[in-house]
């Protein structure tokens, strides 16, 4: 069984971001970039399935700049078998390659590689779109299992537990399927140094986005990107009585 794992290079989740002064976007020069955390969870799950003998091959795919090779290598060091980079000079966070275009590119790669299912993140932590997996499922006409906190792979089907607003829902998906990961699916491993070195030698295919016959022009024009309004500074209270007094008499949020 073969799994395709789309991964995205994004700003590291610990970095405090800065909006550019000209309001055209977020400053990504010289900041730490990482594998999108949800995609790291997807890679981890794929590797665990391989370790359990449920799958034979894990292919990671990224659409991004040539630097996204770093994230592909990280995924390979975690245990993926090979990588494909669809290279573009356009931004992939805002105003460039959008989820619909990513889904169209992934569809082409799926048709080429024929995986049994696609395992990917539920959300990029830069554009916060939460769309690509659902779109890919629609374009392929495959079963969809979003926000997975547990998956069980059988012969022809996958049982997915989904984190939803009212609790947890379990679905049975016919394979092939698209699954997106939620935080509770697993805790990703750190790649060992020796594996990071070995990953440098694994196969990484590079495809130019221009060779794919897809119109990737953005549908959402970025008019501006601004800082959110800041909250006013608050105060420290010295004890519970003072807190209750403030809440009742100053803020008037308790009666």
């Amino acid at each position: 069984m073969k799994i395709l794992v789309p991964i995205k290079r994004v700003i590291d989740y610990n970095v405090k971001i800065h909006v550019k002064a000209d309001e055209t976007g977020v400053d990504l020069a010289n900041v730490k970039m990482s594998l999108n955390p949800f995609d790291e969870i997807a890679v981890e799950e794929a590797v665990r399935l391989k370790e359990a003998g449920k799958t034979s091959e894990i292919i990671v795919v990224s659409i991004g700049s040539e630097k996204a090779q770093e994230q592909i290598r990280t995924a390979i060091a975690m245990g993926a078998d090979r990588g494909i980079l669809v290279q573009t000079d356009d931004p992939i966070d805002l105003g460039g390659i959008e989820p619909l275009a990513v889904a169209k590119i992934l569809k082409i790669l799926v048709e080429k590689e024929n995986p049994d299912f696609v395992l990917m993140g539920k959300q990029s932590i830069d554009d916060d779109s939460n769309q690509t997996g659902q779109m890919l499922s629609a374009l392929l006409g495959w079963a969809q299992g979003t926000f997975a906190s547990a998956i069980e792979v059988n012969n022809k089907s996958i049982i997915v537990t989904r984190e939803i607003d009212g609790g947890r829902e379990t679905l049975k998906l016919k394979m092939p399927a698209v699954i997106t990961t939620d935080l509770r699916l697993n805790e990703p491993r750190y790649a060992k140094l020796s594996d990071i070195i070995k990953a440098k030698k694994k196969e990484l295919e590079i495809i130019s986005i221009n060779t794919l016959d897809i119109d990737c022009s953005p549908r959402l024009k970025i008019i501006k990107v601004t800082e959110p309004p800041a909250r006013q500074n608050g105060i420290k209270v010295s004890n519970v009585d003072e807190l209750i007094d403030k809440l009742k008499n100053e803020a008037k949020v308790l009666s």
Binding site: K16, I17, V19, V26, I125, D127, K221, I223, V225, T226
Partner: peptide, 16 residues
């Protein structure tokens, strides 16, 4: 729409 965990607000114009 908020992006980057709400640390930036993007104003976007759709052409669809």
């Amino acid at each position: 729409r908020p992006v980057y965990a709400g640390n930036a607000i993007a104003t976007v114009k759709s052409s669809d």
